[in-house]
């Protein structure tokens, strides 16, 4: 099977599976999007204040 055919096959299988799953996952997907919006509202208040310094100063020694 060529790569093109394989992608085509994946695409067909996927669209069949998607149609089946669409009704059940559609609602869930909407809810997850709403939850993400809520989270993004919250992130600002939780995020470390000086992001640049916070990220820069996080230096670890290797382990294991």
């Amino acid at each position: 099977m060529s790569e093109q055919e394989r992608i085509q096959k994946q695409r067909t299988e996927r669209s069949e599976a998607t149609q089946e799953a669409e009704t059940s996952t559609g609602a869930k997907s909407e809810k997850l999007k709403a939850d993400l919006d809520e989270l993004l509202d919250e992130i600002d208040s939780v995020l470390e204040e000086n992001a640049e310094e916070f990220v820069r100063s996080y230096v670890q020694k290797g382990g294991e």
Binding site: I43, V46, L47, E48, E52, V55
Partner: peptide, 26 residues
């Protein structure tokens, strides 16, 4: 390249409930 995005990536793994982003990820 915003450092705030890097901060999110790191803070995802913070263990403290008041700081952890993983605990807010649903």
């Amino acid at each position: 390249l915003s450092p705030r995005l890097g901060a999110i990536a790191l803070q995802y793994h913070d263990l403290r409930p008041e700081k952890s982003l993983a605990q807010r990820a649903g």
